[in-house]
Simulated assay, not measured.
Amino acid sequence: MKRVIAGISTAVAITLATAVPAQAAAPAPADPIKALKSQFVVGKGMKFTDLSVVIWDDESEPYLQRTGSFQFGKTGIIASDISSKSAKKSSDPRAADPTGIFAPSRTIRIGTTSYLSGGSYRESMPEGKSWYKDQKGMTGGSSGWFGQLVNIAEPATLASLLKGAKRAGVSYSGTTTFGRLAKVSPWFRATLPLRSSDKTVVTFKLTVNRGGLPQRLTTSHAVTGIFDGPGWEGKTITVDTRFTGWGTKVSIKAPPASKVTAKLKD
């Protein structure tokens, strides 16, 4: 009998010992950097949506909505197409908007050349023209200032975020700064060529799928990092970006030449 009890005890101990690993934390997703680079196929790309919200005290206000797509080449992004519109619930089209941030806009960027329509350019176009060509233009016009500044489709930017980030399942969280982003990200430099402080801290949370591809990115930072004005003191902007359609066919082309101008009205 003692031998039987001893045998049962041993079997139970072995079962418990082998059961512990099964209850451990879920395995890490595939390497996000490798997963991203695997998407760099000519003629392929992905889509994304942004929702920007400005937060202060106990209040918050939806600010901008953006939809866009990236077209990839063998080494990364070769073109982007971004449309923006106001997300304000009380948005009045007659209200003063000198920056054009809330006016519907669209930016097509091929290489470093941007074609901008609407937004802050809506009232400056010569007759018959609807697109302004800027050889080294911003990624999303003035709407980009309140859009997603962090581009996880850039391997160097993604690597910078993941370095030192805390992982929980398929999510990574941490912080970076405008200064670090400016060093590694051409997208950031083109989106926000002028800013008030490179010391601005950006808090982020990135969620990937099991294959390592980004699915959602949420970032937050003080608005005074962009505009150093008393009206923005104590206000934070949070941008929630969703990524879809990885590996789908994307073809982004310049607007018709007949609709493009390189000179705006005075």
Score class of each variant (00 low, 15 high):
121 Y>A: 08
80 S>N: 10
60 S>A: 10
93 P>Q: 03
114 S>D: 12
50 D>K: 13
58 D>E: 01
95 A>R: 08
153 A>D: 14
76 G>N: 13
102 F>Q: 06
42 V>R: 09
53 V>E: 11
61 E>Q: 07
35 A>T: 00
86 S>W: 03
123 E>T: 02
147 G>E: 13
123 E>D: 08
44 K>N: 01
69 S>D: 05
98 P>H: 01
65 Q>P: 06
92 D>P: 11
127 E>S: 05
31 D>I: 01
147 G>H: 13
80 S>W: 01
126 P>D: 00
58 D>I: 00
89 K>A: 06
76 G>D: 13
31 D>W: 01
142 S>G: 01
52 S>A: 12
104 P>T: 08
130 S>T: 14
117 S>M: 04
34 K>G: 05
64 L>T: 14
137 G>S: 07
88 K>S: 01
91 S>V: 02
79 A>H: 08
152 I>Y: 06
93 P>L: 08
44 K>S: 02
33 I>R: 03
123 E>Q: 04
119 G>K: 03
61 E>F: 00
98 P>Y: 00
84 S>A: 14
46 M>V: 06
141 G>W: 12
67 T>S: 15
117 S>I: 03
38 S>E: 01
95 A>T: 03
68 G>W: 11
62 P>A: 06
133 K>R: 13
42 V>T: 10
64 L>A: 15
32 P>Y: 06
37 K>C: 10
40 F>H: 08
131 W>L: 14
51 L>K: 11
47 K>T: 15
95 A>V: 05
96 A>C: 00
